[in-house]
Design a protein around this nucleic acid. Structure first.
Lengths: 125, 125
DNA sequence: GGTACCGGTATCAAATCCATACCGTGAGTC
DNA sequence: GACTCACGGTATGGATTTGATACCGGTACC
């Protein structure tokens, strides 16, 4: 069967999937859970700059899509652990590649941006 | 040297790179250019649902980051072609993987969403 | 002269994202 | 028994992004 869905079609369901993946913080959360379950506060500290509200929203969305699981322990103090599901772990593969690409190509992008600045400053010539 | 940048650090430059990659339409545009240069109107038609404004913005950003090139032909009628640069082509590799994942896992995500709906409707039990 | 195509802009509304502050529960603590 | 703290979040309200729709200047064609 292979490719039944085509992302370029406006009505294709894969659109909504890609939308979720492309959401601002998905790649961070999924990568952060790569090494095992983490707690809310732990995630918040690890993913620097994320606000609790956005983290909550991201986690809820990912949970709704079956990419992560939320396990509540009614201990003391109450503890909540988030972990990747098998589906989430399969997404980790391409997302890790994206993260790696980003980390490896910072100099290239920076250089391109500098060149662009130059060209803009010098005039359109 | 390998990994000099860490995406999880708030101040890391790789953040801005990941931000650009994760922008709403980047994955579509880069994938759309996979098979060779395309013209503005062609892109707009191919990437269904994108508005000209957003397409323009996305193309400008990608150009600034050196991921695509914009070639203007002063012929008649005037023609503008966008193409991936070598850097953009290297990004194509992980992005194509993301696209494939999205296209392949639609049923899984749909099923998860349905389960989630169910659970929400039935009550928290 | 009127219409259509190309490569976009302009304008304004809507969705999203973010910062900051706050809440309820229970534990420790004095 | 009031005070404070950590955990796992919410509430609020503003900034940023995204989107829909309409339009523009230039040229060719009819």
């Amino acid at each position: 069967m292979g490719k039944a869905y085509n992302v370029m079609a406006a009505t294709c369901p894969s659109r909504t999937v890609l939308h979720r993946i492309g959401a601002r913080w998905t790649v961070f959360v999924v990568n952060a859970l790569a090494d095992g379950p983490r707690r809310f506060t732990d995630l918040k500290a690890h993913i620097q700059g994320i606000t609790p509200k956005v983290l909550t929203e991201t986690l809820r969305s990912l949970e709704a899509d079956g990419l992560i699981s939320r396990q509540e322990y009614l201990e003391n103090p109450p503890r909540v652990e988030y972990a990747l599901t098998p589906l989430g772990r399969s997404l980790l593969v391409p997302l890790r590649a994206v993260r790696l690409w980003a980390e490896q190509h910072v100099p290239d992008i920076d250089a391109a941006r500098a060149r662009h600045e130059d060209r803009a400053a010098t005039g359109t010539a």
